[in-house]
């Protein structure tokens, strides 16, 4: 009895030791593998730019002071590390001179990089068809109205933008993400003022004509009506003015719905449903577009049955007349 209890105690000691060895030897190594190589370098910048306030030693006054960070220079670090550029170091795009504090004044006069400064003829440019996107963008209302001041960064924040439509199977999340990009400026006058002196227009008022407005805003992206469908790239970039945007219900509510060439473009390529419902991918997304999602079998069956009934009625009527 005593020997079995002793054995049990030894077993516990061995198991505990093994657990400790695993925790101190294996876990830190596996965690270390997950840490991106740029994190350490970026921490130097995010220490200040990742917060609303920053603290530094003022060598003139010889004391440590805290100041508020310009809100436009605050970076959401969590969003950065899930964004497209999560592998980059700050100094890959910003001048290495920014590593010194206080930052030299002349650094602010430097031109910011454009997408094509890095992605010109490379694998990324090829994959996402940047060339065509650039052609479409130049014809868009943004580029036409604001010329050089309007860059890719206005919509695709380089510090947080993440590809959603290609990766996300939940279309609702894609809709929210993409609409937030538009609403960032179009519902916030403060964000719009650097480019336009237009008075803030209420999105709901502008779309007064649209029935079931809330349902539409939840179910489609601004882009789906406000873009010219070109099919050069997976996401069309020729944003249309409100005068040229789609206002015809049938563009979406028909068998040849434009939603298949816009919102559902990625999913359409991946999934061809055999359920008999036209544009079935829309239904798999918990949505339903009247007319665009009619069922082929139901259509045929109902027409055949109604046809047969009419035929029976005609025969019945003829018999009544002839046998009178």
């Amino acid at each position: 009895m005593r020997s079995s209890r002793k054995l049990f105690r030894w077993q516990r000691i061995i198991w505990f030791s093994l657990l400790m060895i695993f925790y101190f030897a294996v876990v830190p190594n596996s965690m270390a593998k997950d840490v991106l190589p740029n994190v350490k370098a970026n921490h130097k910048c995010f220490k200040c730019h990742g917060n609303k306030t920053f603290t530094f030693y003022n060598s003139v006054s010889e004391r440590t002071v805290s100041k508020r960070m310009n809100p436009y220079y605050v970076i959401d670090t969590a969003a950065f590390y899930v964004g497209n550029h999560h592998l980059l170091s700050c100094t890959d795009c910003h001048d290495p001179g920014y590593e010194n504090f206080p930052h030299a004044n002349d650094l602010q006069m430097q031109e910011m990089l454009k997408c094509t400064d890095c992605h010109d003829g490379d694998e990324v440019a090829e994959k996402y068809n940047f060339k065509e996107i650039n052609v479409e963008f130049k014809k868009s209302v943004h580029a036409q109205a604001y010329s050089k001041d309007f860059s890719c960064w206005m919509c695709h924040n380089p510090h947080s933008y993440a590809i959603t439509a290609r990766k996300n199977t939940d279309i609702k999340k894609v809709i929210v993400y993409d609409n937030e990009i538009c609403l960032h400026c179009h519902s916030e006058v403060a964000n719009l003022t650097p480019l336009s002196d237009h008075a803030k227009k209420n999105i709901s008022t502008i779309h007064d004509w649209l029935p079931n407005q809330i349902l539409h805003f939840k179910s489609v992206r601004c882009l789906d009506c406000h873009v010219k469908v070109e099919n050069h790239s997976m996401v069309d970039h020729q944003i249309l003015s409100k005068e040229s945007a789609v206002k015809d219900c049938v563009e979406c509510h028909s068998k040849n719905t434009r939603l298949m060439a816009t919102l559902y473009k990625f999913r359409t390529k991946e999934l061809r449903s055999k359920s008999g419902f036209l544009n079935a991918i829309i239904i798999t997304n918990d949505s339903y577009v009247i007319s665009a999602n009619s069922n082929h079998f139901l259509n045929v069956t109902s027409l055949v049955i109604i046809g047969l009934i009419i035929l029976v009625i005609i025969i019945h009527a003829i018999l009544r007349i002839t046998l009178k």
Binding site: P211, D248, C249, V250, H253, S254, K255, N256, I290, S291, S294, N299
Partner: peptide
């Protein structure tokens, strides 16, 4: 409404909805 956008003669979608 059910056959909106069909090529043959139909009542316009907005009218049929109304």
């Amino acid at each position: 409404m059910h056959n909106a956008g069909a090529n043959f003669f139909m009542v316009p979608f907005e009218v049929s909805v109304l």
